[in-house]
Design a protein around this nucleic acid. Structure first.
Length: 271
DNA sequence: AACGTGCACAACCGCCTAGCA
DNA sequence: ATGCTAGGCGGTTGTGCACGT
């Protein structure tokens, strides 16, 4: 088959539309299949990301509510940076969104904290880095080793330990499904900024009840109904195109490419 | 008005895991 | 039992916009 160079970068409206149509028809699991058959020249991964983070109809747009913010803080303190897991507790929010929120929120907290500790310190916007030990800005990467924006590591050794512990936790967690590990996020012995964040978070939030809006924790299996499309149902076989699907593809092609499908659109291997 | 800075968000990368042949 | 592949996840980077100076 002819493999054009994979597209990268921002998605166009047309691409979004195409992806939405194909996900509507084939479900939100067969990403490589969708990527190929839609001729988007995107990787399956990229398609999935776009769908999950942007096109998913269940997504909430706009700012996080105070309730959501508190919940994020609470759950982050409880589970650490398990964003996808945290996201499951926040209907309509993606792990990416929460991750981004946490990053900016924590940066703000760090700046505020710094200001309260060192009132004489510059408080102008140009102040950039919240503190000498806190490297939260991706624009100014740390010189020594890799530190994430929340692994802002007061203790350089910790990140290694922490990682090892987190991996352990993750492994045990994935094997023991459904068991929520209370120790999560309480890894390592050093006092890093992670701990500082936890402290900040705990100091400002009280017990928060989870937000449920008809959302279930295992609601990944979402069912999408597109205008004019049947409710999303995918076949048992993930990788074989069925006769049914091939019947769907042809009219869809006409819909997307009224003037004729471009070269490579709809890999006919599948038809 | 122009410029600089920080924020918010989208997207990519690399690694890990589960499922299957 | 093992290797391969797709999907999932966390971390990181890039970019446009808003806001302050």
């Amino acid at each position: 088959m002819i493999q054009e160079e994979t597209r990268k970068g921002p998605w166009t409206e047309q691409e979004d539309f195409q992806l939405t149509c194909f996900v509507g028809q084939f479900g939100d699991r067969r990403w490589n299949f969708i990527a190929e058959v839609s001729a988007l020249n995107r990787t399956g991964k990229s398609c999935r990301l776009r769908w999950v983070n942007y096109l998913h109809p269940g997504l909430k747009k706009g700012k996080m509510t105070p309730q959501e913010e508190k919940l994020v803080i609470e759950l982050q303190g409880k589970w650490g940076n398990r964003w996808s897991r945290i996201a499951r507790k926040l209907p309509g929010r993606t792990d990416n969104e929460i991750k981004n929120y946490w990053r900016t929120h924590m940066r703000q907290q760090a700046q505020e904290r710094k200001r309260s500790l060192y009132p004489s310190a510059s408080s102008s916007k140009g102040g950039s880095s919240p503190s000498s030990t806190i490297t939260t800005d991706s624009a100014s990467p740390p010189e020594n080793g890799k530190e994430s924006f929340y692994d802002t590591g007061g203790n350089p050794e910790k990140t290694v330990m922490e990682k090892a512990n987190e991996d352990k936790v993750r492994n045990s967690e994935t094997t023991v499904m459904g068991k929520e590990n209370e120790e999560e996020g309480q890894t390592g012995k050093g006092y890093s900024l992670d701990d500082l964040w936890d402290e900040i978070a705990l100091s400002e939030c009280s017990l928060i009840s989870p937000i449920y809006g008809g959302w279930t924790e295992d609601s990944h299996t979402f069912s999408c109904t597109l205008a004019g499309s049947p409710a999303l149902q995918y076949s048992d076989s993930l990788w074989e195109i069925t006769e049914e699907e091939s019947k769907i593809l042809l009219p869809l092609r006409d819909q997307l490419y009224p003037c004729g499908a471009p070269e490579g659109a709809y890999n006919t291997d599948y038809l």
